[in-house]
Computed example of a mutant assay.
Amino acid sequence: MNKKNTELTTHEKPHQDKLPEWIRFDSKLEANTYQALPKQGLMLQFPITLKAGLNSPKIDYVADFLIAIPNKQIVIESKGKLTPEARLKLNLLDAVHPKLFANLLIVTKSQRDIQKLPKWLQGKACTLTRLPKVISTFLEQ
């Protein structure tokens, strides 16, 4: 969360309870993703260590969200645009933690944003409006 911080306030989403003061988001998309997620088992800014081999450097990757329920973890990333750094970290996540990568969900603003993603990530993406249904299906599997 090193970019411009966007604080989500109750006047933006009057139907939501007031959020704790410590919650800050890098973008409105990330804030809206948080609003759409179930809160049971939800972790914000979940650190994952990526180390490809014994002599390779450790790279820290911080997932926007992780939903952890018995026998399942879902990594959730809010992406308006895929930066080269994010692409590298998602490639490493696939190589180092294939089970977490298998349960990766990328949330975008629009269908056009999904089409801009590399083909290997498009099947892991959904729009913000479809997120509740996709999460529900994910949790039922």
Rank of each mutant, 00 (worst) to 15 (best):
T49L: 13
L121I: 12
Q45S: 08
L42Q: 10
Q122V: 09
S78Y: 04
A86W: 08
F101T: 00
P57G: 01
P47T: 02
G80P: 00
P84S: 04
G123Y: 10
I48M: 14
A63I: 01
G53D: 15
L92N: 11
L90S: 08
G80F: 11
G123V: 01
R130I: 10
E85L: 12
R130P: 01
L88R: 15
L104F: 10
Y61N: 01
D64S: 14
V62W: 03
L66H: 14
I114P: 04
L82S: 07
A102D: 10
V134W: 07
P118W: 02
P98A: 14
A86Y: 04
L104A: 06
L88P: 03
P132W: 09
V75Q: 12
Y61H: 02
I69M: 13
I48E: 06
S110P: 09
Q40K: 15
I74L: 09
N55M: 13
L88N: 11
L100E: 09
L66A: 15
I69R: 12
R87M: 06
P118C: 05
K79G: 10
K58A: 04
N103P: 01
D64M: 02
Q111C: 09
K79R: 05
V62E: 02
V107F: 07
F46S: 02
G41D: 06
L104Y: 11
L117W: 11
P57D: 14
W120T: 01
L100H: 12
K133H: 15
I48D: 13
V62L: 09
Q111F: 01
F46I: 10
H97Y: 13
V134P: 07
N103R: 08
I76M: 02
Y61V: 00
K133A: 15
S56A: 11
H97F: 12
C126L: 04
D113I: 07
K99W: 06
I74S: 00
S56L: 13
S110W: 08
L90Q: 04
L50C: 10
L82M: 03
A68E: 15
L100Q: 10
V96P: 04
I69A: 02
N91W: 11
L104N: 02
V96M: 02
V96E: 03
A102H: 12
L66P: 09
N103V: 00
Q45E: 02
K109N: 09
G80R: 07
P84Q: 08
H97V: 14
I69N: 01
P47L: 03
H97I: 05
T108I: 10
